[in-house]
Design a protein around this nucleic acid. Structure first.
Lengths: 156, 156
DNA sequence: CGGGTCAGTTCGTCAAGTGAACTCAGCACG
DNA sequence: CGTGCTGAGTTCACTTGACGAACTGACCCG
């Protein structure tokens, strides 16, 4: 059942990448967050080969990240569309993080393709690292990774 | 120069994935954040083929995400090690986001391999989406994506 | 029944990942 | 000074996956 070479036991990053780390998977999700739901629409905006798209869509449905639901447009035949589940929606921070990095380093000339804003107040949003005590961390330097042995106690 | 099939013009997610979306790239970075610096160490903890590892390391150095610096251990010959640049450190939120999702959905039995804590106070840290007005967003629903045409004005 | 669209499969080709063996440099040992 | 060891990297044969175009099948329209 090892469908990926990544070592799941060592970190959740590997596990997550084993699920959505294949080519196109995260792009599919990106479009899903932008409202794309139908096969042909994914195909058009992504330009991915149909076979790959079928595979990724099926995979994401199998993983519970997308849901296939019947869909009936007016005057058209019934089709089905792909919609995000909660599990899929929870990948939003990942996409936001990827986008933020791309915005910073790949579009420094201000040519940001998509901007994220708070729906209520219209202000731009960004990711922030906070601890349970309410402190806002300034960066990776403030983070202490604590490895935990599976089955072992919480090492202080 | 199109080293990837992703459409860079549409979103920064695609651009970022074109840089670090290849197999093993993000895993290499994950280990880099955990303190791994030498080739053999990457090779051991990841189990990646050496050829691929060489390629990813070179690629990440070329992209300015890692830096190759000389390294001299006591009683050993001089070697070089790979260290994160600021550009690489800025990928930290991406890895945190991936890890958080994996922790939630792949290790629900509490078997979280690595926990991140605030270095100052020891409390667990998590990503949070905040807007420039200081509001903390509850999720992807509160986010409004605003597409911007390259070269066009800020469409309100 | 024929044409058109959406969704998906099949297939030949080509790029990429994989794992083992090989090379090369420098230190340790004798 | 030669031999062996280890870290870093390359080469190569094999397998997997991506690619793009053509094909199938369902369904609506006329």
């Amino acid at each position: 059942m090892s469908e990926a070479p990544w070592d799941r036991s060592r970190c959740s990053v590997a596990g997550t990448l084993a699920v959505v780390g294949e080519k196109w998977s995260l792009l599919v999700l990106r479009e899903a967050f932008l409202g794309v739901r139908r096969f042909a629409e994914f195909q058009r905006v992504l330009g991915a080969p149909r076979a790959v798209l079928t595979d990724r869509l099926t995979r994401l449905v199998d993983e519970g990240i997308l849901r296939r639901v019947p869909y009936q447009a007016e005057g058209e035949r019934q089709r089905h569309e792909y919609r995000l589940t909660q599990k899929g929606i929870d990948l939003h921070p990942t996409l936001v993080a990827l986008m933020a990095w791309g915005d910073k380093y790949l579009a420094e000339d201000g040519d940001v393709p998509v901007e994220l804003r708070h729906r209520d107040c219209g202000e731009p949003v960004h990711l922030s690292l906070v601890c349970d005590a309410g402190h806002e961390l300034s960066g990776a330097r403030d983070v202490l990774p604590v490895p935990r042995v599976p089955g072992g106690g919480t090492d202080g």
